[in-house]
Design a protein around this nucleic acid. Structure first.
Lengths: 168, 168
DNA sequence: AGTATTTCTTGATAAATATCAAGTAGTTCT
DNA sequence: AGAACTACTTGATATTTATCAAGAAATACT
């Protein structure tokens, strides 16, 4: 029942799936490839998330509350996606207890992960955050441009470049 | 039905409600006062959240998944709280669709708020973050020690002190 | 009210990171 | 393969923020 609601879609490298300013009416499950979520701040694109296979991504506020959206969702590489529309999501929530349960687990886990990331920013240095990311997700550095990773870590590409060079 | 599950409890200033290392089995609704959530990092207490009246607070990961908990939850001031136990929460989720719906909204809203905060850390300066907080929550600066606010913003108390002085 | 304790401010200095600029390497496209 | 573009690195310098230390102010305690 859940599976039926998902539609398989491919995205080209660079393709924009959700435009900033519009409403986000879909959530994405990434079967393969990388998506990023970014927004313009002081004239610079700041990347908030990079997701790869196995992740769910959406602009949650817009998706749930139908508010207009500040985030752009873009494919960094070619992607195979499973797409779930907003209406189908809410239908599933009502009709399918398993989906409801899953949604709460997904939200809770996502929140806890983001909390950890926030916490890291409150007390650790750029170097520490970089080391941790390289350790947890070395593939990322091979697969996506450094500038996006820099942005994700809240530093400039130059800084990453230097930190990487003077690594212990 | 929902209301019956909440138990009214008072907390003294400084009282620890949830200890780091143990499981968090309760969620709190703050009727009055301030709670903070913090954890030790490199020998320093880093405050991740400060909540005041109208907020829900818990150590979500531990509360939902019964994992052991890294956060300490402490009353910064005297507090009037409404407490909901883990078992009651899950009972409500099953029996009371309204609570389920509310929980999803609460989680989504919390996630979106945290996303905004994370985003601010990725692109804005300490001064910008401070100005925003002073604008959105001026009461905070009157009610809780500066050191906690500093930690929340990811800077030292000295920096806040100086920024505040040289404000435009 | 007066002492003890905690919190806040200020100064001097150091460390981390950003910015700007230029060059090198890598990729994409035809 | 070669041109055009994008991504990465390095250097010089500036800015931001942290650290350490000491004193001032505020608050709590009896």
């Amino acid at each position: 029942m859940i599976k039926e609601k998902f539609v398989q879609v491919d995205a080209r490298k660079g393709q924009v799936l959700v435009e900033a300013g519009q409403k986000c009416t879909e959530m994405y499950f990434i079967r393969s490839g990388y998506l990023r979520v970014f927004s313009l701040a002081n004239g610079v694109e700041t990347t908030l998330w990079i997701g790869n296979s196995g992740s769910f991504m959406t602009a949650i506020s817009s998706f749930i509350f139908e508010t207009s959206n500040r985030w752009t969702i873009q494919a960094i590489t070619e992607c195979q996606l499973e797409v779930l529309g907003r209406k189908d999501h809410f239908e599933l929530l009502q009709r399918c207890p398993k989906w409801m349960e899953f949604d709460i687990v997904l939200l809770s886990r996502s929140f806890a992960m983001l909390e950890e990331r926030m916490f890291a920013h409150l007390h650790s240095t750029a170097r520490e955050r970089l080391d941790l990311l390289m350790q947890n997700n070395p593939r990322l550095f091979l697969d996506v441009p450094l500038q996006y990773i820099a942005s994700l870590l809240g530093v400039t590409p130059e800084t990453i470049s230097r930190l990487r060079k003077n690594s212990p």
